[in-house]
């Protein structure tokens, strides 16, 4: 593009990464606020939270955990591939990450539609007749997994852009910051799920 910035600037890289991390901090607190609400309500309605969490399918949650963990590894490997100059391998690894993200979303779709089938969604009659604590649990469940799923979608868009740029050789051995930052974002999605999974699905 402009000739001024065409030479490599090592400082640029550090600033890029720092900026991405600052953004990730705001994301952590976005979810952190919801975790805090969860913790307080759970301490006040522990029995209802226990009963409500029992209705979630632990298998679906575990499966999605495994899917996200594997996808985190593949995206981390894609950075290695780009830095070794193995373009095809990098594209393959980002592609696998995208497929795993899609698997996660399909899984989520079935999980949610199963609940919708039994009229279990915010504002439904079934839910309004539940105990106060259970309403709170399912409200938080939809809010937290919904916001998380939105992040998965954003991550997929970012990774798709990255994939195209690797293919067009805009991301190379020297310039891989976009891939690195997209990967950081993807790891954040994984990170949040690591906490969501035991809190919503396991601890009943």
């Amino acid at each position: 593009m402009s000739t001024v910035h065409s030479h490599s600037e090592p400082q640029d890289h550090a600033a890029d990464k720092l900026g991405m991390w600052l953004f990730l901090f705001t994301e952590l607190f976005l979810f952190g606020g919801l975790f805090l609400v969860y913790a307080v309500f759970r301490s006040q309605h522990s029995v209802s939270f226990h009963n409500a969490a029992d209705e979630l399918n632990a298998f679906t949650g575990t499966l999605n955990t495994v899917v996200l963990l594997v996808s985190s590894m593949t995206v981390a490997m894609s950075i290695t591939a780009v830095r070794y100059g193995e373009r095809r391998k990098a594209m393959l690894l980002i592609g696998v990450t995208l497929i795993l993200a899609l698997v996660f979303m399909i899984n989520k779709y079935f999980e949610w539609s199963h609940k919708f089938h039994y009229d279990l969604y915010p504002g439904s009659e079934v839910m309004m007749n539940m105990e106060h604590g259970e309403i709170l649990f399912f409200g938080l469940y939809y809010m937290m997994t919904g916001l998380h799923a939105l992040h998965v979608l954003v991550g997929m868009v970012l990774l798709t852009i990255t994939l195209v740029k690797v293919q067009r050789k805009r991301i190379t051995v020297e310039r891989y910051h976009l891939l690195e930052n997209s990967a950081l974002y993807w790891h954040l999605v994984d990170l949040i799920w690591i906490f969501l999974f035991p809190l919503l699905y396991l601890v009943t």
Binding site: D190, I194, F195, L202
Partner: peptide, 20 residues
């Protein structure tokens, strides 16, 4: 079990932060 599950999750998050 809440405590154990959160401890294991914290270890996992720590590993993801360090290596991935």
């Amino acid at each position: 079990s809440v405590f154990v599950a959160l401890t294991v999750a914290s270890v996992k998050v720590f590993i993801v932060l360090l290596y991935f």
